[in-house]
Design a protein around this nucleic acid. Structure first.
Length: 266
DNA sequence: TTAATTTGACCCCG
DNA sequence: CGGGGTCAAATTAA
């Protein structure tokens, strides 16, 4: 603690980098271990919970460090509407963006990134809006925005790009930008839930609330694999992301990933 | 027919 | 000027 207090920004940044690196490594480990487990065994569940706890820890550390270092962090959401008469809104967009000191491009800050081995469900629905071949990359990058971006003006986006692979395992970088401000289906249509009154332990915040969603996997890269499958009762595990100054929305920082063994790739 | 994706154009920004 | 993020018309899927 006194170490942190006396540390310079550079030192704090170094800690954050290390925690982030650790998180990436853990995800790699997770990607290797989970597919070889029998998903229905109690052992797999236990291991998933351990991963959850680990990610939860690093997430909390990151949150703490980032909130302590407020020079960089304001939740900088640009509120602008898409669509509509182009020339009417375009100026508004630019003006609003400039007022808030943001660029029009890259409309939100980086929230988190993961490496995944297969298409996965992260609990949100995404709509693809672009695909680019990035210079010198072997694989294209796909751009997705939250499927609720239109109705609820949700600004969350993500990009998916296959990594340069040296083995036979295909890995994908998934980068998330912008916080979800939308409500999800189960919240919008509360007829289904609303039954659990039992007191929830506060520390366990967002670990069980997202597990019932079934959603789209991310789409096609390079046209080299399918995106049309989804195992209905696929077990999922959660991965927490860094929560950046949005304490009122605990749900949006968690992502749950489906386990899908690599033979689905064909 | 509507909804989602594809894909080249557009354009911001370094 | 070029890389890469976004738009939107065309195309495909549902």
């Amino acid at each position: 603690m006194n170490i942190l207090e006396s540390s310079t920004h550079g030192g704090c940044q170094m800690v954050m980098n290390e925690v982030e690196h650790q998180r990436i490594l853990m995800m790699g480990l997770q990607d290797l271990i989970l597919p070889i487990l029998n998903p229905y065994s109690g052992q797999a569940k236990l291991i998933q919970e351990l991963f959850q706890d680990i990610f939860s820890c690093s997430s909390k550390v990151m949150s703490f460090l980032e909130l302590g270092d407020n020079s960089v962090k304001e939740a900088n959401l640009i509120k602008y509407k898409r669509k509509g008469g182009k020339n009417n809104t375009e100026k508004h967009i630019l003006e609003e963006a400039r007022e808030k000191g943001n660029k029009r491009r890259k409309n939100a800050q980086h929230i988190g990134s993961i490496v995944t081995q297969a298409p996965y469900s992260d609990g949100y629905q995404w709509r693809k809006y672009g695909q680019k071949w990035i210079s010198k990359s072997k694989h294209s990058r796909s751009y997705y925005r939250c499927a609720n971006s239109k109705e609820q003006m949700c600004l969350a986006t993500k990009t998916v790009q296959q990594k340069e692979t040296n083995g036979m395992v295909r890995l994908f970088n998934v980068d998330y930008y912008g916080q979800h401000i939308c409500k999800r289906d189960e919240i919008i249509h509360p007829a289904v839930v609303e039954t659990t009154h039992h007191s929830v332990p506060i520390v366990k915040e967002n670990q069980s609330s997202t597990s019932t969603l079934v959603n789209h996997v991310h789409g096609i890269l390079d046209g080299s694999f399918e995106n049309s499958f989804m195992m209905p009762d696929m077990p999922e595990y959660l991965t927490e992301f860094t929560d950046i100054g949005m304490a009122k929305a605990p749900d949006i920082t968690s992502m749950n990933l489906s386990l899908i063994s690599e033979d689905v790739w064909v």
